[in-house]
Simulated assay, not measured.
Amino acid sequence: MWCTDENQGEFFGQESWGKAVYQEITVPGKIVLTDMFADEEGNAAEGMPVTLVTLTFVEHEGKTKLIMRSRFASVEGLQQVMGMGIFQGCASQFYRLDDLLDKLQELW
């Protein structure tokens, strides 16, 4: 993945790799995965935190609400990725998802 968001400062233009290992998929309500930084061969990056991510989909006022929880093994791991802009990165992906859903809605 290439960082194409100029607002990401020093990360703009950098290439990064990640790996997700899905542990549970319960249709239609939940996905649990382990998310990690990786090299281009898919090997976990040493010294980088691993995140346990739980995505829960619930019905709310006629729509689907997504609840995303991320768990880190340590406060230091959380602080490390916070310093790398994980919040902004996740937010930018959800904005892109919003845009995609809007485009798909136009097609229907």
Rank of each mutant, 00 (worst) to 15 (best):
I25P: 14
V53C: 12
T34A: 12
K30H: 05
T26F: 00
M36V: 11
D35A: 06
T26E: 13
A73V: 10
A38T: 05
V58H: 10
A38L: 05
M48E: 15
E46P: 07
F37K: 00
I31C: 05
V21C: 05
E59D: 14
T64W: 01
F72Y: 15
T54W: 05
G47T: 09
A20W: 05
S70G: 15
E61L: 04
T64M: 09
V21W: 00
E10L: 09
E59P: 03
T56D: 09
E59A: 11
N43C: 01
F57D: 11
G62I: 01
V21A: 04
E15Q: 14
V53G: 06
M48P: 02
V50S: 14
E61P: 00
K19P: 01
R69V: 11
G9Q: 12
G42P: 12
E59F: 04
T34W: 10
G9M: 11
L33G: 01
G42W: 05
Q23V: 03
S16H: 07
A73L: 12
R71H: 13
E24T: 10
F37C: 05
E41P: 01
N43Y: 06
M68L: 11
A38E: 02
E6C: 03
R71I: 08
G18Q: 12
F12V: 06
A44G: 05
E40C: 11
F72P: 04
V21F: 00
Y22M: 10
Q14Y: 06
T4W: 00
T64A: 01
G9Y: 03
G42R: 03
K65V: 02
E10F: 06
E46K: 11
K63F: 01
Q8S: 13
Q14K: 15
S74R: 08
T4F: 04
A45F: 03
V53F: 02
T54H: 06
W17V: 03
G9E: 15
I25N: 08
L66P: 09
A73F: 06
L52E: 08
M48A: 13
C3H: 10
G62D: 10
C3D: 14
K63I: 01
M68P: 00
T54E: 10
T56Q: 03
R69F: 00
L52C: 01
F12E: 11
E15S: 07
V21P: 07
V75I: 09
T51C: 12
N7R: 15
S16C: 04
R71N: 07
V58G: 04
E41H: 08
E10R: 14
M48R: 11
Q8E: 10
Y22P: 07
G9P: 07
G62N: 10
S16V: 02
E24G: 02
L55G: 01
L66T: 06
V58A: 14
P28S: 11
F72S: 10
T26R: 04
E15F: 00
G29Y: 01
E24Y: 00
L55P: 05
L55C: 02
K63V: 02
A44S: 07
D39A: 12
Q14W: 09
V75C: 03
T64F: 01
G29P: 00
T26K: 11
F11T: 13
T51V: 14
T51G: 04
G29M: 05
N7V: 08
G62W: 03
E61V: 00
N43H: 15
A45P: 02
G18Y: 04
V53H: 02
G47K: 12
G62K: 06
G29A: 09
E41T: 12
E15P: 06
